Simulated scan of single mutants.
Amino acid sequence: MSYCAQPHLTCSVTGANRGIGLGLVTALASRPNTVVFAGARDPAAQSLKDISAKHPNVHGVKLTLGDKADNEAAVAEIQRIAGQLDVIIANAVGISNYYGPLVETPISEFRDHWEINTLGNVILFQTAHRLLLASPSKAPRFAIISSGAASMGTYFPLRVAAYGSSKAAINFLVKVMDQEHPSLISLAIHPGWVRTDMGNQSALAHGMAEAPETVEYSVDGILARVDQATSKELSGRFWNFKASHEGMMWNIATEEIPW
């Protein structure tokens, strides 16, 4: 039985109204004994209305990345409805708005990317950690959807200095969470290069028609990592959604990705 299908588990997914986030909510919604909170800037989005109508265990909550008041209200809503929080998948990957060499990247782009991509997830953790660490499961998860573009050991020349550095910073904070909270299993997960709005924008910037991986394939790999992280030994590490040996420039052949 998967971790997120254990009795009475509450999972929260951010960035849930489209792309990978919506795919994660859809997959989790069909699991037994699982309550899913779908965090989005617009929880009344039609995509979330449709899935909530089909799955009464799915609850849309307003959660804007980096907005402390939104985060506090969302956590309070989770506590009111479910009384517990066992898994957070921080999927709201934020922005990847600039493609170009470091020497030409405006400092304002670094500030924007770090403010949203890095500090947005710090605010989420700071706001939710008390409820999360009190999880009756005794093995709460905080999984951050990172990016292979953040890896220095497996470097991709994608001209995304602002985006990649903001994700590398989040990876470091996954290690901090692991060290500071012995009961918490913290994970950074590379989701693949996925056919989302952001993924396709990046693909176009690098001369491709679209990103290579489907949302469904990415979601399957992400949830497998969350489900399989059953011991502290797997915490504080950077995981590939799926190892690939196809040899394409964007493929990573290892299960674990070097920082």
Rank of each mutant, 00 (worst) to 15 (best):
M1Y: 07
Y3F: 13
C4A: 15
Q6P: 04
H8T: 13
S12D: 06
R18D: 08
I20M: 06
G21L: 08
G21K: 01
L22D: 02
A27M: 01
L28S: 04
V35N: 14
A38W: 08
A38H: 10
G39S: 09
D42F: 12
A45L: 03
L48C: 09
D50H: 01
D50K: 03
H55Q: 07
P56R: 00
G60I: 06
L63F: 11
G66P: 12
N71V: 14
E72F: 05
A74W: 02
A76V: 09
I78K: 06
Q79L: 15
R80H: 13
A82T: 11
A82Q: 01
I88R: 00
I88E: 02
A90V: 12
A92R: 02
G94H: 05
N97Y: 06
G100V: 07
G100A: 08
P101T: 10
P106Y: 09
I107A: 13
E109Y: 10
F110E: 05
R111M: 15
W114C: 11
W114I: 15
E115L: 15
G120I: 12
N121H: 15
I123D: 13
L133K: 02
L133R: 03
A134W: 00
S135Y: 03
S135H: 05
P140K: 03
F142L: 13
A143W: 05
A143I: 12
I144A: 06
I145H: 00
G148I: 11
G148A: 15
M152C: 09
T154P: 00
T154N: 10
Y155K: 10
V160P: 02
S166R: 00
S166L: 01
M177G: 09
M177I: 08
M177Q: 11
S183K: 13
P191S: 06
R195I: 06
T196W: 02
M198S: 14
G199H: 04
Q201I: 13
S202W: 01
S202I: 10
A209R: 04
A211F: 00
S218K: 04
I222C: 14
V226K: 00
D227I: 04
A229F: 04
K232Y: 00
L234I: 08
R237H: 03
F238K: 01
W239E: 03
K242E: 10
K242M: 13
H245W: 11
T254D: 09
W259C: 05
